[in-house]
Computed example of a mutant assay.
Amino acid sequence: MKTPKRLQPLVEDGLVDEVLRQLMSGKEATVYVVRSGGEIRCAKVYKDAAQRSFRQASTYQEGRKVKNSRQARAMEKGTRYGRKVAEEAWHNAEVDALYRLAAAGVRVPTPHLCFEGVLLMELVVDAQGNAAPRLNDVALSPEQAVAFHDALIEQVILMLCAGVVHGDLSEFNILVDADGPVIIDLPQAVDAAGNSEASAMLERDVDNLAFYFGQFAPALNGTQYGKEIWALYQAGLLHPGVKLTGQVAVDDTPVDVQAVLAEVEDVILEEEARQRYLQSAE
């Protein structure tokens, strides 16, 4: 096929030998099958921010590190330079997450390089050597659904133990190779310790899995693995292979309303005293 414009620099630099075909086009990128160094790989070409349906919300940017304070300020102000830095951070987030997760034993594609908005990585294949299908394209028996769900919960735990939350996990960004599920699409991945919304994102990721697999195995509906996993993580008790129940004990301890009101009143009095002090100092 004709070499896409965004892949031309990689061809000219000898990083890609040949572009074979387009594999898929999604909300954030177009993926091509390429020949590189004698191997068949895939090249993920990120779409420009204006073309993506998945926006770089500040929720996902929170906690991401940039090289210096100037870049951080530019990102906050949304200047042209800041938008460029944010775009680079978006691309690098996936590369960093892939290396970090692969080292932790998470089933993700092996990354090779990221150059000018193109991520060159392993092509995940099925038992016949063809490009692996997405989870939503695979017919599942109830037993397979439970097995895949259990495998993915273990992957989520491995990810969190490595300090990463996917942030957009669903049946559309999970591939199925000969050995089971492989997690893909990580540009929106967040640092579990550095993002205030990490717990909500993790719970949403896990609920997405329960909802999807619950169509095949209804016993998974209503499970609370996300809350349970995060509670163990916060308590420092989360580790690979941890035994889960899928349920979280409800705290039914009566709320001491008077104590809460007294604390609120103390805060109000402190603020009033602070304001009086500031006025007297003028």
Rank of each mutant, 00 (worst) to 15 (best):
K5C: 06
Q8P: 00
L15R: 13
V19T: 09
R21W: 05
L23Q: 07
K27D: 13
Y32L: 03
Y32K: 05
R35E: 12
R35H: 12
S36A: 15
G38T: 03
K44Q: 02
K44N: 03
V45A: 08
Y46C: 06
S53C: 06
S53Y: 08
F54G: 10
R55F: 12
R55Y: 12
N68Y: 02
Q71C: 09
R73T: 13
A74Y: 08
R83H: 10
E87L: 12
W90M: 13
N92D: 15
E94S: 06
L98P: 01
V108Y: 02
E116S: 10
V118G: 01
L120F: 01
M121A: 07
M121G: 10
L123V: 02
L123K: 04
A131E: 10
R134K: 14
R134T: 09
D137Y: 06
L140A: 01
E143S: 11
V146G: 04
A147E: 12
A151N: 07
L158E: 03
L158G: 02
H166G: 06
G167S: 05
S170Y: 07
F172I: 09
I174A: 06
I174R: 01
I174T: 10
V176N: 00
G180V: 00
G194I: 07
S196L: 07
S196R: 13
S196N: 11
S196C: 08
M201V: 09
L202Q: 05
D205E: 05
V206A: 04
L209E: 10
L209K: 08
F213R: 00
A217E: 02
Q224W: 04
E228T: 06
W230S: 06
A231T: 09
P240Q: 02
V242N: 09
L244W: 03
V248R: 07
V250L: 15
D252M: 12
T253F: 04
D256Q: 02
V257T: 11
Q258R: 12
L261Q: 13
A262P: 00
E263P: 00
E271F: 10
E271S: 11
E272P: 00
E272Y: 11
Q275D: 11
R276C: 08
A281I: 13
A281S: 12
